[in-house]
Every structure is written in C-alpha cells, then in structure tokens.
C-alpha cells in the first residue's frame, strides 16, 4: 500500500516534447514508472522516449487509459493544462511548473474542488512511492521502500530529509511535494488524511516553511485526527519579514507566517520538532520511539 500512486498508476506527461518534459519523462521511465504517453498540442502522432504523443489529454486518456499526469507546461499556459487534465477526468494531476500567476490558480482551484481529480502542486517536485512509481523530478535513488510518509513545501529540502531517513534505515511509503506557491492543490491536511488512512504508513515527516498558515492548520488536524507519530521541520527561522525567500509562498507578511508561530503550533500538537535540518530523520525516529515507549508503559 501507499498513497496516490503505485505500480499500476498509468502516467502521461503534458509538455513531453519540451526539453525538460522529455528529460524527466525518461527519468520516470528509468525509475520504472508506467509512463504511457504524452501531450503537446499540435505534436500529436510524434514519438518521444518511445511514447506516443497526443494533441489533447482526452485523446491520450482514451488511447492509453492514463489515470495520472505530470505537467511541465510553461507558466503562461500551465493553468489551462491543469484544467484540461481535470476536464479529461484524470484522477491525479501533478503540476511541476514553477511561476504560474496566483490569480490563475485562484481560477483553477474551484474547478479542481468540484471535480473528481486531485491536484498536487504547482511548483513542486512531484510524488513518489519508492520502488513503484515516480512522478516528478526527484532523484529516485535516494528513496527506499518503507513506512514513513513524507510531505513538504520544498524540493531539495525533501531530498535532504528522505536521504536522512534512508541512511537511518527508514524507508518511505510515499513522498509528496506540495509545492512552494501561495495557492496549491493539496495541503498538508489533505495528505495527512491519506497517510492516516494508509495502513502501510506508520509515521509521518513533514517539512514546512514560512508564509501562510498551512502548518498551523496541519498541527490542529494532527491533534484531532492523526494517531500516527509525526515529526516536523520548519525552514526560515532566520528569514526577515516582508521578503520573498525564493518560493512565491515563502514570505512573512503583516507579522503572519513566522517560523516561531508554526513551531509553537506543531509542538503544542505533540509533534516532534527537528531543530536543525540535519536532525529531520532523527526527529522522525524520536517520534516513533516516544510513541513506542508510551505504549510500553
């Protein structure tokens, strides 16, 4: 078991004929993902990485039975690409593209909400279930199959955390990059619910960052609904207010969204805190052991 994707997930790539889309399609194929095709308007009939290219997502879905898509379409057209995937009834839409205007996402989100599709991202590394299916740009080899669910607003920070877990012998059930933008399709809460319901996930590691209140909402959700051990790291304790730290969503505005407020909320919910980015894997192990010793008493 896992969440969102497994060895049976059939994946297409929107933007497959672009340099980046093709590169990562090959990366996913190498990892063992069941890539079944790609979409680029006007390039239907071509072949990329041995996969058929279609003009529309609907045609690709009908021909290949795809139930997931990975989007590398440039920012100006990416919102439309997401809507096309949702319109074609693709169950899982993973938007990698960075730089989509916020107002475009404000138009997309209500449509996704009223559909049967789930959106991950945009501006995210993607989703992986180790040894089964990789949809995205993360380096596959750092992962190992196991029972830790990982979710994060950042890319390389997730790699760092996953690598620490793998080194500690803690494999992952699934890893989900939520994305660094202010408006994203899935929040910590959405993924927490999936991890909590997944029998193969035994513990959860989350990486948050400054900006917004998604971590505070996650803390509240963990307190009410999550029975599994949870550990967390928050990036940006030293970030100055009012400055955007790389990610469009990473900004402390009007005194809101500070690391301190998030850390307090998470700790109050009984979540194990990693004080240092070097300590993320160890914090997850502490969370598991603390739970085990509490049970033992």
């Amino acid at each position: 078991m896992s969440i969102l994707v497994d060895r049976d997930t059939r994946v297409i790539c929107q933007g497959i004929t672009g340099k980046v889309g093709e590169f990562h399609t090959r990366g996913c194929l190498d990892y063992g993902t069941r890539m079944v095709g790609g979409v680029t308007p006007g390039k239907g009939g071509e072949t990329v990485a041995g996969l058929p290219v279609f003009n529309t997502v609907a045609e690709a879905r009908d021909a290949t039975g795809a139930n997931a898509t990975m989007i590398f379409v440039p920012p100006a057209f990416a919102a439309d690409a997401i809507l096309e995937a949702v319109g074609a009834g693709i169950e899982l839409v993973v938007a990698i593209t960075e730089g989509i205007p916020v107002i475009d996402m404000a138009r997309v989100l209500p449509v996704v909400r009223d559909s049967g599709s789930r959106l991950i991202g945009p501006n995210c590394p993607g989703v992986i279930t180790p040894a089964e299916c990789k949809i995205g740009i993360m380096p596959g080899y750092i992962h190992a199959p196991g029972h830790v669910g990982v979710m994060s607003r950042s890319g390389t920070l997730t790699y760092e955390a996953v690598w620490q877990l793998t080194q500690l012998g803690r494999g992952q059930s699934s890893c989900v990059g939520l994305g660094g933008d202010p408006l994203v399709g899935s929040s910590f809460i959405d993924i927490l619910a999936l991890f909590e319901a997944d029998p193969d996930t035994h513990a959860i590691l989350m990486m948050g960052e400054i900006g917004g209140s998604a971590e505070e909402e996650a803390a509240d959700y963990v307190r009410r609904h999550v029975t599994k051990p949870v550990a967390a790291f928050i990036a940006g304790r030293t970030a100055p207010p009012g400055k955007r730290m790389g990610h469009a969503g990473a900004i402390i505005s009007g005194g809101k969204g500070t690391a301190a407020a998030k850390l307090t909320a998470l700790a109050d919910a009984g979540i194990e805190i990693a004080e240092s980015p070097a300590d993320m894997g160890a914090a997850l192990v502490r969370a598991i052991e603390r739970r085990a010793s509490a049970r033992g008493r």
Binding site: R153, S154, G155, T156, I210, A239, P277
Partner: peptide, 25 residues
C-alpha cells in the same frame, strides 16, 4: 550558496543554530 529555496532557508537557519549569522539567502 544553496540549490533550492527550502534548503537555502534551512541553511541560513543552520548557520544561526551554530552561532553564525547568514549574510544572504
């Protein structure tokens, strides 16, 4: 000098945690 926004913020935090002050993101 870091690759990735989240890791870059974390690196600043790490420097501070060990008694230094970051000059930049």
């Amino acid at each position: 000098l870091v690759n990735g926004a989240g890791l870059a913020m974390s690196t600043m935090d790490l420097v501070k945690l060990h008694g230094g002050e970051p000059a930049n993101f």
